[in-house]
Write a protein that binds this DNA or RNA. Sequence first.
DNA 1: AATCAATAGGTGTATATACATATAAAATAA
DNA 2: TTATTTTATATGTATATACACCTATTGATT
Lengths: 152, 152
Amino acid sequence: MKLENALLTNKFSSEAQKATLNILYTAWWLKSITSKELKDFDLTHEQYNVLRILKGKYPDQLCVKDIARRMIEKSSNVPRIIDRLEIKKLVKRTVSESDKRETLITITQSGLSILESSTSKLNKVHASLQTITQKEAEQLNYLLEKLRATEV
Amino acid sequence: MKLENALLTNKFSSEAQKATLNILYTAWWLKSITSKELKDFDLTHEQYNVLRILKGKYPDQLCVKDIARRMIEKSSNVPRIIDRLEIKKLVKRTVSESDKRETLITITQSGLSILESSTSKLNKVHASLQTITQKEAEQLNYLLEKLRATEV
DNA sequence: AATCAATAGGTGTATATACATATAAAATAA
DNA sequence: TTATTTTATATGTATATACACCTATTGATT
């Protein structure tokens, strides 16, 4: 869908400003597709993201700060997301021996299992929505990173 | 910044999956830049978006549903955003005469004024971050809309 | 060693998202 | 006209974002 129809406006001050709104809208669209699928697994987008990060280092543990550094949204409140995962017994907290300020997070077998089934479902859905070629995806990645060139 | 460095991983299952994460991360990055500027005006990103929508039709009024249809994030809870704008006297609510279910929203002079100064500030900041050409912006818009081709 | 600064994680608050439900009004059907 | 359905908005709840602040611990400075 054209952005004009998604936002019911065609008042864009420039092509670059339109691209900004297009990125924000596409991000919302992607998130809402993913969240809808994750509902069946009683997971939010952010809880899924934390599980995915933990699995990436499994069987190693990660402390809260290291998880936060890998989050898509850097201002995510990781302790609170861990709270909810811990209640569902998908992760475990332990105090680090080497630095007692750190809390080490481990993904449980149950967490690994739910991550596997939800990822499998998400992959299927994303595959069915695949509309761009690999070359186009590369170009998109190039343009987004060029856009963020001023990032500190 | 490369996505690999932003997320501290290089485990992407495909170029398309990387593009998905890249869009989500870029959207967060854009929002955080904007929100930081809007803090000076005591506005959130979403409150700013509602004011911008109202100004687009000014001096006409818009009902809540028409604002919702124009929001970037379609699941935004518009009545509650209006609540906060109303407390700050940046908008006014009136019941529609032709359909008493509808609430008509009007942007106030104060709202127009704060929108003008905040937009001016945002434009300056965005201009200073401009890193892509118009052609590249066009291409980005094309790719994002192609990505959303399956949108219902 | 004692003091001070920095760091890690947790917690409090306001706002937003996502979604369910409630209420009133309008549109439609019987 | 009355009953039913649909629509518009508001409200309730759980989770998340954004950011400030607190506490415990560690590291650095004197």
